[in-house]
Design a protein around this nucleic acid. Structure first.
Length: 274
DNA sequence: ACCATTTGACCGGC
DNA sequence: GCCGGTCAAATGGT
């Protein structure tokens, strides 16, 4: 790999980490949402998983190799252990379990000078596909009450073939994004730390491929977010060609930010066509 | 019965 | 000997 100046690499890692955080939270939101159209929901999760896998791979490429690894070649270490030590990288996240891969827990240890145990995971395809990817998750001391942050350390790239939900590639058509003048409150006044999602029209009825998500801003800091399904409804009002529209769900967020409980509905409804 | 998780034992590095 | 990572039997859930 071409050498990247450290400050650029560091910025890239920061940006990717923030993107990772946003996507994992978005994934959690989708998992919590109404199963109004399970096929599309599955496709959405598949898209998010794919994005998460790309970001995870990019992070692993960008993270500098630990200086302690320089001495490893002097040791009579096995090739397996060498590779395992070399290909490791770490992220901090509030949602450690949703990274687009399936993991099987194989151990848990109390760690010296830490209040929380460390959990050890292997890729679920460790046996059937020989995938060597592992990760550890350890909760860090709460800086903000009730908002745990986890250090997730990955080792080795996934060599397993991800289970795709759709054979054909599908396209996220950004040209179909409408301005956020949806049928409900416009979402135009988000401050920098808020995650904003607005709706747009699906371009075609026979392509179950488009998800009405536009990330206007990714949060700059990790904040606790608990996605909550407020209600769901089917838009069959006859004004528009209902065959071209999938059911819509109105989702709401509640999260705490700087001792304030923020409900997304106060700023604008989150409309997701699912 | 099968699968994932839990948990104590074991092992290697320092 | 301490510590962290892995193994594997026991356990629990479906």
């Amino acid at each position: 790999m071409e050498e990247i100046p450290y400050n650029h690499s560091s910025t890239a890692i920061d940006n990717l980490s923030q993107g990772f955080e946003g996507l994992t939270q978005l994934r959690a939101l989708f998992l919590a949402s109404s199963p109004a159209k399970p096929t599309d929901k599955t496709l959405a999760i598949g898209l998010l998983d794919k994005a998460l896998r790309c970001i995870t791979a990019a992070l692993s490429d960008l993270q500098p190799i630990s200086p302690t690894l320089a001495v490893e070649d002097r040791k009579n270490d096995t090739e397996h252990k060498k590779r395992k030590r070399m290909q490791s990288w770490t992220i901090m996240t509030s949602v450690p379990h949703f990274d687009g891969h399936q993991w099987r827990k194989y151990g848990q240890k109390r760690i010296h000078n830490s209040d929380f145990p460390r959990s050890y995971y292997k890729c679920t395809h460790n046996k059937d596909q020989g995938c060597q990817a592992t990760k550890t998750i350890q909760q860090k001391e709460d800086k903000v009450p009730n908002s745990p942050i986890y250090k997730v350390s990955y080792c080795m790239h996934h060599t397993c073939k991800p289970i795709e939900t759709q054979e054909n590639p599908f396209v996220m058509d950004s040209s179909a994004i409408m301005n956020s003048t949806s049928s409900t409150t416009a979402s135009s006044s988000y401050s920098s730390h808020e995650l904003s999602i607005s709706s747009f029209q699906a371009p075609s009825s026979d392509q179950p491929t488009v998800f009405p998500l536009q990330l206007e801003e990714i949060t700059e800091q990790v904040f606790p977010m608990e996605a909550m399904l407020l209600s769901s409804e089917t838009r069959g009002d006859g004004v528009e060609d209902s065959s071209r529209r999938s059911p819509m769900a109105v989702l709401g967020f509640d999260w705490e930010w700087q001792d304030e409980l923020i409900t997304l509905g106060e700023f604008g409804d989150l409309i997701v066509r699912i």
